[in-house]
């Protein structure tokens, strides 16, 4: 999929060279032209045409934005509490996702959920070690939202 996006960007850039007009609009029309080329050639490509996943991608992006806003307010709520009685710690979580892109996206999403940062991922990409600010509450919320994230990521990459 990454190769298709890269090829599309290259076609857009070539279009700018051919037109000899360095503006965003020219690049955009070249990009659209590249989309057409890749769409015609989709039978010969090893993976699916990447725009077929656009809907899932937009949903994932929306999920990212919602998570960052919610998590910011949870963290601020903890910060401005007059007596800060938090129980931080590191817990482990297993994942069923495979491949570098899927694991990276899940790590990004978990880092954006309330009070959790991925500290380390095991050698075989199976176990995440996550630091949270408050073990009893927040580790449960991470484990609950894990399935939601995994499904959203699978829809984009598979």
């Amino acid at each position: 999929m990454a190769i298709q996006v890269l090829a599309n960007l290259l076609i857009g850039l070539l279009w700018v060279f051919f037109q000899d007009d360095w503006s965003v609009l020219t690049f955009f029309s070249g990009y659209l032209f590249g989309l057409l080329v890749i769409f015609i050639l989709r039978r010969f490509l090893p993976t699916k045409f990447y725009l077929f996943n656009l809907h899932a991608m937009i949903k994932l992006l929306f999920l990212f934005i919602v998570e960052i806003v919610v998590s910011s307010f949870v963290v601020i709520g903890i910060i401005i509490r007059p007596k800060m009685n938090i129980k931080p710690g590191i817990f482990s979580m297993e994942t069923t996702l495979k491949g570098d892109i899927e694991v990276t996206l899940l790590a990004l999403l978990i880092t954006l959920t309330p009070g959790s940062v991925v500290v380390e991922i095991s050698q075989d990409n199976k176990i995440f070690y996550i630091h949270t600010m408050d073990i009893p509450d927040l580790s449960n919320s991470v484990l609950q939202s894990k399935d939601r994230f995994e499904n959203a990521i699978k829809k984009v990459t598979r």
Binding site: I68, S71, S72, V75, I76, I78, I79, I80, M84, I86, P88, T111, L112, P114, G115, S116, V117, V119, H131, M133
Partner: peptide, 20 residues
């Protein structure tokens, strides 16, 4: 920034910085 000052260690401070 207040959270950065109040929280105890580097891991907790990363929370305050990465999100807020």
């Amino acid at each position: 920034a207040i959270g950065f000052l109040r929280l105890p260690d580097v891991y907790n401070r990363a929370h305050a910085l990465s999100k807020s």
